[in-house]
Design a protein around this nucleic acid. Sequence first.
DNA 1: CTGAAAGCGCTTACAG
DNA 2: CTGAAAGCGCTTACAG
Lengths: 342, 342
Amino acid sequence: MKEKATSFDIAYKAGVSQSTVSRALRNSPLVNEATREKIQAIAKELNYKVDKNASNLRSQQSDTIALLLFADPTNDDSDINPFFLSMLGSITRACAKKGYDLLVSFQQASDDWHADFEDSNKADGLILLGYGDYVDYEEKLIKLLDQGTHFVRWGAEVKNLPLISIGCDNHQGGIEMTEHLIKKGRTKLAFLGSASSHAPEFFDRYKGHCQSLKDNGLVVNQALQFNALYTEEAGYQAACKLIAGGEPFDAICAACDLIAIGAMRALQEHGISIPEQVALVGFDDIAVASFTFPALTTVKQDTQLAGELLVGTLLDLISGEEVKTTLIPPELVIRKSCGNEL
Amino acid sequence: MKEKATSFDIAYKAGVSQSTVSRALRNSPLVNEATREKIQAIAKELNYKVDKNASNLRSQQSDTIALLLFADPTNDDSDINPFFLSMLGSITRACAKKGYDLLVSFQQASDDWHADFEDSNKADGLILLGYGDYVDYEEKLIKLLDQGTHFVRWGAEVKNLPLISIGCDNHQGGIEMTEHLIKKGRTKLAFLGSASSHAPEFFDRYKGHCQSLKDNGLVVNQALQFNALYTEEAGYQAACKLIAGGEPFDAICAACDLIAIGAMRALQEHGISIPEQVALVGFDDIAVASFTFPALTTVKQDTQLAGELLVGTLLDLISGEEVKTTLIPPELVIRKSCGNEL
DNA sequence: CTGAAAGCGCTTACAG
DNA sequence: CTGAAAGCGCTTACAG
């Protein structure tokens, strides 16, 4: 392994000062055109790369963003919700586009947060992503805020905290999934997903669901709501309870696609046909959704837009610009699980 | 935002020298117990975090690994094969376990590689992951080798290059998927997936497939092999060609699950029943595989083990230990797409 | 066990 | 447009 070249080596070869090399390599307009070209040629020849540790140390910025992905602690961590994996992909791409590197870290909600990333100057800012018990997070978020850490989170808007969030308009999404079912002639709609402030995204979807029910002259039947968190298994369990409960239903709104897929399994095991006997709508539009049988009608969250907004907003925040919490409009993707399209 | 504390601030407060602070914070045995505790308490109180840029610059190591994920350039980059996303997850976890940070970067196969990560001292080593045209990669791999970069790749073993790879035993996997079909009484097996050195993983699976055919007294019918790369769409196209080709077949080996899923769609569109008329096996065992209809029998690659091996091997390599290319044994996961279990 | 000092490789005022 | 010099915040010989 060869010794790594430094800017001094280049300076020596080029017959200029090290300062000039540094400037030339960063395309400073202060450097003479010809000098710059010469220096860059030598740098290339020597396979020189700026030492990031040195340059970051000196300039006190890292051009790196850290992504903290929270896994549901009830989950064994081998399965991350595919929705978040998809977000990870779009965030990575958005960072690359802006010339930032991305440090990825999976966290347990219970962990001591590695908010150190910014404190230790490894990252200029943080993106927080993942479901989890919001109530548990809150104090940590406040701590981050206190420390003056630059961060943006994915999720439901929080009213009384000056948090910058990018999230889906879950309330609107809840309305759309419900509306669609009602238009299909369903009247006894169940909702599978936790309805509490511990899971604000789901709660918002549920509230949208309830509002749509009311707007369409239907009543909210508490006996048709069952809690479930994030997983296929939870969806399966909730659907089993729903079936066992005996309360008649002809449609299910699932708070996320994984829950919908679990519900699908439960329905199939009980010989209940989809969509003939029970129509089903999910939320997220993960890749799997188009491969289930029948293909799942769902509310899509635009992960690409989300990634760009998350990164863009964080960078604005870091550079001291005015930023604000943004809601992304959901989009109903109609497939087969609620009957054929009209 | 408060000023960040430095080790000098702590030294001042503790009434010791900065060197001692540095030692105490790294739990050096050279420091007196009481002194260390005092220093650590002050550090905590001041919310002090070691500046990684400074410490990395000085110690010339970063405790960071970079993961380069290659996207198939023919793909619009919004979809990364879920198999790699799953690998990403397991690698992230393996890094965390070892106390390393992970820098993630998506690359186009055509890009100038950011092998800079190591050159620029941002990472101590690289993990290379992703399908792509191997032939295109080769010269870049050689360049990495020449530079003395520490890296480990996921994929098929390469014979004439001193590359360290971690990969699945694709040949064995090809045998197992084929054997299973033959045991189910199928005799006219098609193979969907590129059979060329441009896609060595697929090629190895194909070779295993052919060998199994021969071992069981069946002939390899070239008319039943169709090229396809990595995607659902490619699988769909290949299956359509297979069907249109007119050569009779009663089973399909798909080189990856996405291809299998595409083939499934083609078969269903043509009114061909699975598994009655045609049995189907995939490769990878992505999460979707258990949600298709019928559920997909497939050859599982153990991503968790893969992640641990990739990270562990890379760290060994960095610390100068002897390392070697390792093959992970595949595992057949039997579901419904080849008929009910015996 | 502790401290004074050098130095990792850059960027950036400052002076010309 | 260019150079000499300071300094980012640590770690690590070196000396005691």
